[in-house]
Write a protein that binds this DNA or RNA. Structure first.
Lengths: 134, 134
DNA sequence: AATGATGCGCTACAAATGTAGCACATATGA
DNA sequence: TCATATGTGCTACATTTGTAGCGCATCATT
């Protein structure tokens, strides 16, 4: 329901899951972990913690464990952007998603959606349910 | 030489130092820590760690320990923005600082400087704009 | 002088994160 | 069938961050 901010490592794996949809630990490792010099064990540990947090979902595919993203890309990215803007930049109003037009993570359609997400947010502090607790 | 990314708590204190220039632990606590519900001890610990990391400087003012920022605001913020853009958004080119025009942290002049900082950066990976700190 | 509030240097401890190894089961080629 | 490679569930350990207490020195007040 409420996925916490992913750590940098977790975000990398999550991005891979968003791109590929579903992947095994081995694939995730080859595509992400190995690139960063992680050992296969490390990739698996990060993955496991993501599952614990709900950032990833693990299922069985013909006897092999495979993973899928447990958080919606736009939702999570949107919240990360809002958090960064508020917490670091102290920007509290509308956030122009257009700033990230060069993003390799979001295409134009997604950027538009992000824009709407950020706009919608600027009014209600907690867009979803979850009564604001400060 | 190279100040690491401040943790959220550290950033809050740093912002206060940027605003006020110099402040005692007590002042920092009243202005920042207390607001967040930290105990005075906590404020002092975070502060100490900042000194250890070079994010703050401690000096003696008539027998009382006072602190000043140990990192240049624009430099640090610039790097945080670049990091966020690259790491999270996968934006690798020019970053429009204008996106943060509503910032309470940076005024227009500073935003312009940030813009220049981000532009300069997109070419050389290690830019050096340092307002004579450290 | 005795007290109480503060400042200051240390130490403590839990959770989050980075990073990885171990042992065991099973699949697989020689 | 035996030696391997690989998948899987656990455990481990260092750092960083959040959060705070202790004891002692000092300063100000009664």
């Amino acid at each position: 329901m409420d996925n916490p901010n992913p750590s940098p490592s977790e975000l990398e794996l999550l991005k891979c899951l968003w791109r590929d949809g579903v992947a095994s630990a081995r694939e995730l490792h080859d595509r992400v972990g190995a690139e960063r010099g992680w050992s296969y064990s490390t990739t698996r540990t990060v993955l496991q913690r993501m599952v614990d947090k709900g950032l990833a979902e693990k299922r069985d595919s013909h006897g092999l464990a495979v993973f899928t993203a447990g958080a919606d890309k736009l939702d999570l990215i949107g919240r990360m952007v809002r958090d960064f803007a508020r917490r670091v930049m102290e920007v509290d109003g509308a956030l122009p998603a257009s700033a990230f037009s060069g993003s390799a993570l979001l295409d134009d359609a997604e950027l538009e959606e992000l824009e709407r997400f950020l706009e919608a947010e600027q009014n209600s502090d907690a867009p979803q349910r979850d009564g604001g607790r400060t």
